[in-house]
Design a protein around this nucleic acid. Sequence first.
DNA 1: CGATGATCGTTCAGATTTGAACAATGACTC
DNA 2: GAGTCATTGTTCAAATCTGAACGATCATCG
Lengths: 164, 164
Amino acid sequence: MFNFERQYTDSVTDIRWLDATEMAAWRAFVAASHLLERRIEEQLKAAAGLTHPQYEILVVLSESPGRQMRMTELARGVVVSKSALTYQITQLEKAGLVERTTCPSDERGVLAVLTDAGARCLERVAPGHVEVVREHLIDQLSREELHAVTRAMRKTEASLRTSA
Amino acid sequence: MFNFERQYTDSVTDIRWLDATEMAAWRAFVAASHLLERRIEEQLKAAAGLTHPQYEILVVLSESPGRQMRMTELARGVVVSKSALTYQITQLEKAGLVERTTCPSDERGVLAVLTDAGARCLERVAPGHVEVVREHLIDQLSREELHAVTRAMRKTEASLRTSA
DNA sequence: CGATGATCGTTCAGATTTGAACAATGACTC
DNA sequence: GAGTCATTGTTCAAATCTGAACGATCATCG
């Protein structure tokens, strides 16, 4: 499973290791994002039996024109694999929060549509969710930090979306 | 998207919604962290058949005195549930990268110990991993942004570790 | 039109995660 | 010491995620 050979032929590798500052940033980022993800998941599950991906699906749909979106685009929006989205939309359909419609313009396509019940569910759950995000992230940051984080994360997102 | 009915009895709800700046920060953070997580997972899987949690376990152990750590503490360090850690340590044990030892001072305890093979594996895999982190996160950020992100993430981590 | 290749969403198998329940041990009080 | 409660790590069932394979539809071009 694991071998010992380096795939690079360089006799002296030119690896640019992370210095202390960079490593600190990376570690903090990983720890914070994992912890926050856990907390959010916990809150949503307790409050509404929703997972974070499910909640994000409802949010994205609610902001989409006609409260509907194609599967592939939705998967891209919530950053999840197509198969995971298929699974989650099925779950949300069972719960009556989302419906599937065949896309009129493309026979292959499927439109996920937010139902009224889904919209109401989102309204009901959003306050508690926002409070968690606010308490542990937003309200911890100065306005300046908020802007810096936004700039940084957008660059990261762009970098990742661009390269394949 | 949100109407005016509330399930709370407050005549005027005191929900502090996210303003545009705050929402932008939160959205960017979620998207970037999910995308980066996916990319890292992909890279580690392709390069060494490791998952990100497995890699983090190796890293944390390698930096721990005696290359060993108690299960609970390790779980806290890599931000994963105890049962997930049990599973992953079993996997790493099968691969010969980690060993289990009963803790001398506490009969209940288990020490996860990094093996030489585990240390070599880490050395081999680290460069490729660091490159991904650098390309999409570190190198995208100015030095100032790097510091801001670190400060922000540490506050978030502290907030989440403190409360419950 | 017909052929080729891309895109769409689903299905499937396999891996992983989580929380709850559990047995075993430790810590602490009376 | 005995009793009580906390902690440790594991097991288990259930849910979820991913990538690969698939059939169906679309788009392009000769």
